[in-house]
Design a protein around this nucleic acid. Structure first.
Length: 401
DNA sequence: AGCGTGAGCGCGTATTCAAA
DNA sequence: TTTGAATACGCGCTCACGCT
């Protein structure tokens, strides 16, 4: 017979007084809490009983009471109310911590924090107890958010709701609540209240033939390593992070190939750049065309002349050229009147793919050269880049058949 | 020009749903 | 039950922009 069974037996047979047992248990619990309290309890010169309470920021706060018992009550109260903080804010932080332990990257954690700051911070939801938040409170919160001046795209709202859902799911796992109020919120109902999406046109997202030519002219004019990286992007359609991480050993002159297997990452939490795998962890090999070889030769000669040659393809007096510099270089060279709008490295990537598709290259081949799935290639990278002359030719042909 | 930071959205994977 | 398309999901990369 174990302790509990013994207790029940004694209780059932009126051998012991349950009220007394309860009291003893309370006393024991109280003693345990007081024992765990890390600070000394003392009677000070001024006649007050004193101790410290730990604060969230690591410092301590002095507490004093006339009577020792009152101070002890205070300590008990402090730990009982602080044992599980059920405010939405703390539950959210707890969820973030769990996500981090699960292996979410620094930048994802950073995004959680950003989105919290943008959409939740300052709202009454923050300090509501999680077990008091029902679908009604959640809906009211969403209404407040969407009625405020904050820009909230439907996409961002869905992301945010995903996090909130995660917070409640974890609270259920932690046995703090039994039901998930998110299950009863009709999110699509809020779509109409979101900031309307702004459609971007093909002209904005890609470079026309004229723009491409103008860019090439400009970057050939300025002799710096970053602009050479931009030129290479025009031929390879590489991601900016991949350009910044490219090493000379990745270029195979014998087989005329470039092996793209690295990418620059930038940890927002640690505030550091590092080289790691490509975006989707896949290695791809693309052909080394004459244009690419020419740029690479130019880079090598230029760096050699200046004594900058190193393991990375794009290096100068400060070492490896960061992705942000390459990215800026593309933007800064597309600000003049010849350009419909500023163009990014990714716009160049889209252009290369669209050009390939327009020239009749199959989606499978284009996707493999750009390093993503066919679906993504079709949805995000295929624009109508044909000129009016070409269109006219197509229509003429079709009209005659 | 170069860097830091807020935010948009690319992109792979999981889930749902309908048709066979 | 299988298959394949559509949709949901959410991580994390790149863009936009402001500051120095």
């Amino acid at each position: 017979m174990n302790d509990q069974e013994l207790l029940k037996y004694m209780q059932d047979n009126n051998i012991i007084d349950m009220a007394y047992v309860q009291e003893q248990l309370e006393m024991k619990k109280r003693k345990d809490i007081l024992n765990k309290h890390p600070y000394r309890v003392w009677l000070a010169q001024d006649g007050y009983w004193k101790t410290y309470f730990p604060k969230a920021d690591g410092t301590k706060r002095l507490i004093k009471k006339k009577k020792q018992n009152d101070l002890e009550d205070c300590i008990i109260e402090f730990y009982q109310s602080n044992s599980i903080d059920c405010s939405f804010k703390v539950r959210f932080e707890d969820w973030i911590e769990r996500q981090q332990k699960c292996g979410r990257s620094d930048n994802t954690i950073y995004k959680y924090q950003c989105d919290y700051k943008r959409f939740i911070k300052g709202d009454t939801l923050e300090f509501m107890k999680i077990d008091e938040i029902t679908e009604i409170e959640l809906s009211e919160y969403l209404t407040r958010l969407l009625d405020s001046n904050t820009v909230v795209y439907w996409r961002a709202l869905k992301d945010l709701f995903g996090y909130i859902n995660g917070v409640f799911k974890k609270a259920i796992r932690d046995r703090i609540i039994a039901e998930n109020p998110c299950d009863y919120v009709d999110l699509p109902l809020f779509r109409s209240k979101c900031t309307p999406d702004r459609e971007k046109t093909a002209e904005e997202r890609t470079l026309s033939g004229g723009e491409r030519k103008a860019l090439l002219y400009k970057i050939n004019d300025s002799s710096n390593v970053a602009s050479m990286a931009v030129e290479l992007s025009l031929y390879t359609g590489m991601r900016v992070g991949e350009l910044a991480a490219l090493k000379w050993e990745d270029i195979n002159y014998e087989h005329r190939t470039i092996r793209i297997c690295r990418s620059e990452k930038n940890s927002r939490l640690k505030k550091e750049r590092y080289i790691s795998s490509t975006k989707n962890d896949k290695i791809r090999v693309i052909p080394l065309t004459d244009d690419m070889a020419r740029v690479l030769r130019k880079v090598k000669e230029f760096e050699f002349k200046n004594g900058w040659l190193g393991e990375y393809v794009f290096q100068d007096d400060r070492g490896r050229v960061y992705a942000s510099r390459i990215s800026d270089c593309a933007v800064n060279n597309t600000t003049t009147a010849e350009f419909h709008n500023k163009k990014s490295i990714h716009a160049i990537r889209r252009t290369l793919n669209s050009n390939m598709k327009c020239a009749g290259v199959s989606g499978t081949v284009a996707a493999s050269l750009l390093g993503h799935t066919e679906k993504v290639n079709e949805e995000n990278y295929t624009y109508d880049v044909s000129s009016m002359e070409e269109k006219s030719k197509f229509m003429e042909c079709a009209g005659r058949v």
